[in-house]
Design a protein around this nucleic acid. Structure first.
Length: 710
RNA sequence: UGCGAAGUAGAGCAGCGGUAGCUCGUCGGGCUCAUAACCCGAAGGUCAGAAGUUCGAUCCUUCUCUUCGCAACCA
């Protein structure tokens, strides 16, 4: 689309089940905000929508964890997210929420429209149900003992310890994570979106029409999905938290959250239109609207495959691009709020922005670093040291310093006014700088329009570097030493000074325009110093060397950015470590890699329960790796009276040759189970140390094989 | 396990057919208007490994290794 009439920009709806971290910010919000600010500076008709995604089973689970209601959870986190985004300068035209009535209506209308056209399929299936919690359970919400490695907290879809894919039926002793009860099977009816019917459409639209303008990671992912064959996808769920399905026969069912959430973009647009006396329809229905979704890489499928099919069926426009970012890691590990290994937006705001020596300039500092290391083509890494270096030696030293020294010199050598430019003294250095200013405008705009924000920001910084070099070449402070009798510079010298500082100031004005989409607070401060109105920041003014009028008096400079102190960095690193350690202690089993030293005690049993387990000591007489299974060893164990074959998921911890001859404790009356085609008759008891390493549980001193354990 | 993406100077990243660039850091020099800031110069890379296509490969093809993501509702 060459010249769209209007733009509709979205950022992924943050899920309101907890605070969001700076990885989210860098992935979906900051790039979108930069793009939007650029479009606004170009006077484009643009609406930037977002909002909290407030439905889905995870919210109800979070509510149970916090011992409260879903409503309170979403109210709490919606408020937090909304104010965090505002504090960080993310300039949504509206930050809405999916629990609003207008969203429910919009989502229901959407469903009804598809259903009335006969575009949805209805199917009855059997699913696991938790009778106490009165809810059907996704595989993820069923836990039990892994049949392969014995991990007691395997999920219904996979054991995170040994990596085996599972279905809930395979779990030993399955439990609902909601009530702890054993789930039962129950029939239920659901509506499905038959994605399989639209493979040809998707193949044409994505793999042909957009093969050259979408990012490689996005195209690759979509290609994989389409080639693998798409399946019909349920759009409804049995749950009481969400948008009710608008059909009589669907009592107790809600729209599946993935179906309702993206419709949130539409309902947010509607609310915005209502608030501003506009018509929302052209934004979703007119072909001259350019729709762009900013998301993280985990959301590609929803925004490139599923939602476009929904939009197509509903008769809406399709996204022009879906610039998805990869992920941002933190200090060598991936970010995770649940593990405490993250920097929450809320924490950054409290620790930096709201401090006395903080404020908006530290919003810009974060925006600068996050854009500079944006994971545009691959995962990147946030480190506090990197943040400090980038702020101190790039933002402060290059950009901030150029602006500052230009102003200081102007006040010293040109009496606080924009000096005149003497055209007859224009030299090659001046011409080159003027050329650089014009070229940078074009470069930055091309880069932003192709979603290369990191490169665009680099281009702006390079221009500031050229300013410093220009200043060095012209050295007006040296020229000023050519004084006359009155102690002031002679006229020829003053003219040289005038010219160089005139250009430095015009460059400063240009820098304000160019940096504005990235660091809006700094741009505003620069306008204040130059005593110009915000209108000067309009993009078309960039490239001009006539932005500041000759003779206009300017304010005294104030520092745009401050440096980040070593102590602040050390404190944050310490805080991060403390937080993750703390969470590890509190929740030892929630994550597969955390140590199991404080496993919660299991439900009490009576002696008879224990007596049912037949434990005996045996000696390993043979061990070999099971083919095509990374983690399994096939063992022969001598139990005195008999030899047993036992398959155990311990290959990552032991070398087969090292364990032959070891005495071990065996559960001998465990029902036989086939693993990778080999029947296993029993289970070997293992203990796990803090590092996740397995150790055999065996007698202190050797005893006869077959000895009982009690 | 399938499917995607990625592995390039100490660090963070570009480049994607003609034997490598940028920013920071390091070392040396210059300057002093400026937030110990700025400017100039230098050192530092067998472009993950192997094979192939080509006159020529970091770039294309194949295989291997490593990391991350999706499938499995964290950007």
């Amino acid at each position: 689309m060459n010249d769209p009439k209007r733009y509709l920009i979205t950022s992924a709806l943050p899920y309101a089940n907890g605070p969001k971290h700076i990885g989210h910010l860098a992935g979906a919000y900051l790039p979108a905000d930069t793009y939007v600010r650029y479009l606004r500076a170009r006077q484009k008709d643009v609406v930037y929508v977002c909002g909290s995604d407030e439905h889905g089973a995870a919210i109800t689970i979070q509510a149970m964890k916090e011992n409260t209601t879903p409503r309170e959870i979403v109210d709490k986190y919606h408020a937090m997210l909304k104010s965090n985004m505002a504090d960080l300068g993310i300039s949504f035209d509206i930050y809405h929420r999916t629990s609003e009535p207008i969203h429910h209506e919009t989502a229901q209308e959407f469903f009804t429209a598809l259903n009335d056209k006969g575009l949805l399929e209805v199917k009855e299936t059997e699913q696991y149900f938790d009778a106490e919690a009165h809810t059907f359970l996704a595989d993820r919400y069923i836990t039990g003992t892994c049949p392969v490695c014995g991990n007691p907290s395997a999920y219904g879809d996979q054991c995170e310890k040994c990596g085996t894919s599972l279905s809930p039926e395979q779990l030993i002793n399955p439990r609902s994570t909601l009530s702890g009860n054993e789930p039962i099977k129950k029939a239920t009816t659901h509506w499905y979106l038959p994605l399989n019917l639209y493979e040809d459409f998707l193949r044409q639209w994505i793999l042909e029409d957009h093969k050259s303008d979408w990012k490689a990671n996005v195209l690759g992912q979509c290609k994989g999905w389409i080639e693998a064959g798409l399946q019909p996808r349920a759009v409804t769920r049995d749950l009481d938290w969400g948008v009710p399905v608008p059909l009589k026969e669907a009592a107790g069912k809600v729209l599946y959250v993935w179906f309702d959430a993206p419709i949130g973009y539409i309902s947010a647009t509607k609310q915005w239109a209502l608030d501003n006396g506009k018509d929302w329809k052209p934004y979703w229905q007119d072909k001259d609207t350019k729709l762009v979704h900013f998301i993280g890489k985990d959301n590609i499928v929803f925004h490139c495959i599923i939602f476009p099919v929904m939009l197509k069926l509903h008769g809406d426009i399709l996204p022009e691009n879906v610039p998805s970012n990869e992920f941002m890691n933190l200090e060598g590990d991936k970010m995770s709020t649940s593990r405490g290994w993250s920097i929450e937006m809320d924490d950054y705001i409290n620790d930096f922005v709201k401090k006395e020596n903080g404020g908006d300039q530290l919003v810009d500092a974060l925006r600068y670093y996050l854009t500079a290391i944006a994971p545009e083509t691959k995962d990147s890494e946030f480190t506090w040291k990197g943040f400090q270096d980038a702020v101190n030696s790039e933002l402060v030293a290059v950009f901030g310093n150029f602006v500052n020294r230009s102003f200081v010199l102007m006040h010293k050598l040109c009496s606080g006014k924009v000096p005149p430019f003497h055209n007859d003294l224009l030299d090659d250095t001046d011409k080159q700088l003027l050329l650089d200013i014009q070229q940078t405008k074009t470069t930055v705009e091309n880069l932003i329009e192709t979603y290369k924000f990191r490169d665009a920001l680099t281009a702006v910084m390079d221009l500031a570097r050229k300013g410093n070099k220009y200043m060095q070449d012209k050295q007006p402070w040296i020229v000023a030493k050519q004084t006359g009798d009155d102690g002031k510079p002679v006229m020829a010298a003053q003219q040289q000074i005038d010219n160089s500082l005139h250009l430095c100031l015009q460059l400063t004005a240009n820098l304000a325009i160019l940096i504005n989409p990235f660091l809006p607070f700094a741009a505003k401060k620069m306008c204040h110093m130059m005593k110009v109105v915000d209108k000067m920041l309009e993009w078309e003014n960039a490239g001009s060397a006539k932005l500041l009028k000759v003779g206009y008096s300017l304010r005294a400079p104030e520092l745009l950015f401050r440096k980040i102190d070593d102590n602040e960095v050390a404190e944050q690193i310490q805080k991060l470590k403390t937080k993750s350690e703390q969470l590890k202690m509190d929740n030892p089993v929630t994550e597969n890699d955390s140590a199991a030293e404080v496993l919660p005690q299991k439900a009490e049993i009576v002696f008879d329960d224990f007596a049912k387990i037949d434990l005996r000591v045996g000696t390993i007489t043979a061990a070999e790796k099971v083919e095509k299974a990374d983690k399994l060893l096939k063992l022969e164990v001598d139990l005195g009276s008999e030899k047993r074959t036992i398959v155990s998921g311990i290959a990552l911890h032991f070398d087969p040759v090292d364990i032959i001859g070891k005495q071990v404790t065996v559960v001998t009356n465990l029902a036989a189970r086939k693993m990778r085609g080999i029947e296993s008759n029993g289970m070997i008891l293992m203990a796990e140390d803090a590092g996740g390493k397995l150790k055999f549980v065996n007698p202190d001193e050797a005893v006869a094989n077959g000895s009982g354990v009690s």
